[in-house]
């Protein structure tokens, strides 16, 4: 009956998304009157016991080095063994890059209904009904899971991390680990930058910036806000910025606390990728830009004048000048 949370790691470190699912899992467990356990695969360089402060009491750690890189097939096989051994009836993933690979496989393996991209706690008053975004954030749906074992994958940034007290008991778990067929040969990371999908604040710019040579001031603003950079589709298509910064319906969907859109008109396809942001700021010289309708705060004016002032004001606020 317990809740099992998949604690996702990258290069031995626990991802921020994992803290969200641990906090979420603890709340769901409380709702169901049960306990939450965690599972970690591969080598970890952090103190897993400290994750107890997010509510998890027991963590199953499968240390096998074959699990240091993701092969969804191997991962699903190992997690299924932990599910069977722990008797968990609800398994929670982050709907991040790894969760999207593993959860559907585990769903088939365990014949467990999966709701991917949950945005709220499940309604467990009568069965298990989970709210998720559909139509790229233009609507939501309540999905009933009909199977005995259930899987929820939680949208990144949809649930707040709740830290309290406590330590977790870390228990080595011996599993049969398959041979990975996906052989990772290299990992390329943009070092020092905030990953877009994990960022609390995102600064995004569009065609209004006129050319790639003008991104310096956007980068400066992002830096003082400790924000990730993003861009609109025309900007990525024109190769002013790399594709992995493109947010929108066909790019990456994000849900930061604060989304600052500079020189982006706000086409419906762009909004579909950012409409789950909690606070939206729009800076555009066109007062008729559709983005203002979706914004919380706005400035009508010239980005080239506003952005440097914005950066200065943030620096002042943070006592950086």
């Amino acid at each position: 009956m317990s809740v099992l949370v998949f604690i996702d790691t990258a290069e031995g470190h626990v991802k921020k998304a994992s803290l969200e699912v641990l906090s979420y899992g603890a709340k769901v467990a409380e709702q169901l009157g049960t306990t939450v356990e965690g599972v970690v695969l591969g080598t970890v360089s952090e103190d897993l016991a400290a994750l107890g402060k997010y509510g998890v009491r027991k963590i199953h750690h499968v240390k096998d080095g074959a699990l240091d890189h993701l092969d969804a097939q191997v991962y699903a096989g190992v997690i299924a063994q932990v599910v069977n051994a722990s008797g968990a009836s609800l398994i929670i993933f982050s709907n991040n890059v790894d969760g999207k690979a593993i959860a559907p496989r585990l769903s088939v393996r365990l014949k467990a209904g999966l709701v991917s991209g949950a945005v709220a706690l499940p309604d467990t008053s009568n069965g298990c009904v989970v709210k998720k975004n559909v139509f790229s954030g233009k609507a939501f749906a309540n999905i009933a899971v009909k199977t005995e074992i259930k899987i929820i994958s939680l949208s990144p940034n949809a649930y707040k991390i709740i830290a309290g007290e406590g330590t977790a008991e870390v228990v080595p778990f011996t599993a049969t680990v398959g041979t990975p067929k996906v052989k990772v040969t290299s990992v390329v990371k943009a070092s020092g930058e905030v990953p877009l999908t994990e960022a609390e604040i995102v600064v995004s710019a569009g065609r209004g910036l006129k050319g790639p040579e003008n991104w310096g001031m956007v980068e400066e603003l992002a830096k003082v806000l400790h924000a990730a950079l993003a861009c609109s589709r025309p900007v990525a298509d024109a190769h002013w910025r790399p594709h992995n910064e493109h947010v929108g319906q066909t790019g990456i969907a994000i849900a930061p606390n604060l989304y600052i859109a500079i020189g982006i008109s706000g086409a419906i396809q762009h909004l579909a990728g950012v409409n789950r942001s909690k606070v939206i700021v729009v800076i555009n010289k066109d007062p008729e830009a559709p983005f203002f309708k979706a914004a919380d705060y706005g400035i009508v004016g010239d980005a080239f004048e506003i952005i440097p002032k914005f950066t200065e004001a943030v620096k002042k606020l943070k006592g950086m000048v």
């Binding site: 990258a10 991802k15 890189h69 993701l70 991040n96 890059v97 996906v182 052989k183 990772v184 040969t185 290299s186 990992v187 390329v188 990371k189 943009a190 930058e193 905030v194 990953p195 877009l196 999908t197 994990e198 992995n244």
Partner: peptide, 9 residues
């Protein structure tokens, strides 16, 4: 992957 890419065979 978060903040980058992973290449596999």
């Amino acid at each position: 992957i978060e903040g980058g890419e992973e290449i596999a065979e």
